[in-house]
């Protein structure tokens, strides 16, 4: 007898990974690392007109301990980089990072001695947003990309290399579904 029939109505079977990823992706708490004018657009992104509460990310957390998505908005100087990396290190795993705007992504128009030419020199960036500054829709798009990434990741096994089986961490006989290497939408079942 199938499991659903024995449990009756109101029950649904699923994978733990899917539930955890669904919860994580719809309750991202951004750490607003507003360094320059992009922060203004980030505020609009969180405010009622663009209403990021639709995506569950309206709760900006100014404490890194309570955040799991860092939005680096604006140009970052070499002096600030040490503080940004420190805050990033204080965020609990799992965590994600958005480089918002031209300056955070590449240094932008600040091609000079004091500004880092892209925060990916010291932070693992998941999504880059172009624009100077990007519109709030673009930030929402980036957030949706992060959500897509989380949904295609596998969470319980806690392995960071997507598309590969974590070695030696799984009990015998368990089934893990991971995204296939280059196509995130295609899922591969590992027996």
């Amino acid at each position: 007898m199938p499991l659903e029939q024995s449990l009756g109505e109101g029950f649904l079977t699923t994978r733990v990974d899917a539930v955890v990823n669904w919860a994580r992706s719809n309750s991202l708490m951004p750490m607003p690392m507003g360094l320059a004018c992009c922060a203004i657009e980030m505020m609009a992104f969180a405010a009622p007109k663009y209403d990021v509460a639709r995506f569950g990310s309206e709760a900006m957390r100014f404490s890194p301990r309570q955040a799991d998505l860092m939005i680096v908005a604006g140009w970052c100087s070499y002096k600030m980089a040490h503080a940004v990396r420190r805050i990033w290190d204080q965020m609990a795993d799992p965590k994600w990072c958005i480089a918002m705007g031209a300056c955070a992504s590449t240094g932008g128009m600040h091609r000079c001695y004091g500004v880092i030419q892209g925060i990916d020199n010291f932070l693992p960036v998941d999504v880059y947003i172009p624009g100077c500054p990007p519109r709030p829709e673009a930030v929402i798009h980036a957030l949706m990309d992060i959500q897509e990434k989380i949904r295609n990741d596998y969470s319980v096994a806690q392995d960071y290399q997507s598309g590969q089986l974590p070695e030696g961490r799984l009990p015998q006989g368990s089934h893990v579904v991971t995204p296939a290497g280059d196509a995130p939408s295609k899922l591969v079942v590992h027996p």
């Binding site: 420190r86 795993d93 965590k95 004091g114 030419q117």
Partner: peptide, 30 residues
């Protein structure tokens, strides 16, 4: 101007274009 270390007590990144030269910053200490 050094970039921050990737882990506590780690070496500072001295190359300002580390990403262009193939460095990938780590996500967490583990």
């Amino acid at each position: 101007l050094p970039l921050p270390a990737q882990r506590p007590g780690g070496e500072l990144t001295m190359d300002p274009f580390a990403a262009a030269h193939g460095s990938k910053p780590i996500k967490s200490y583990e």
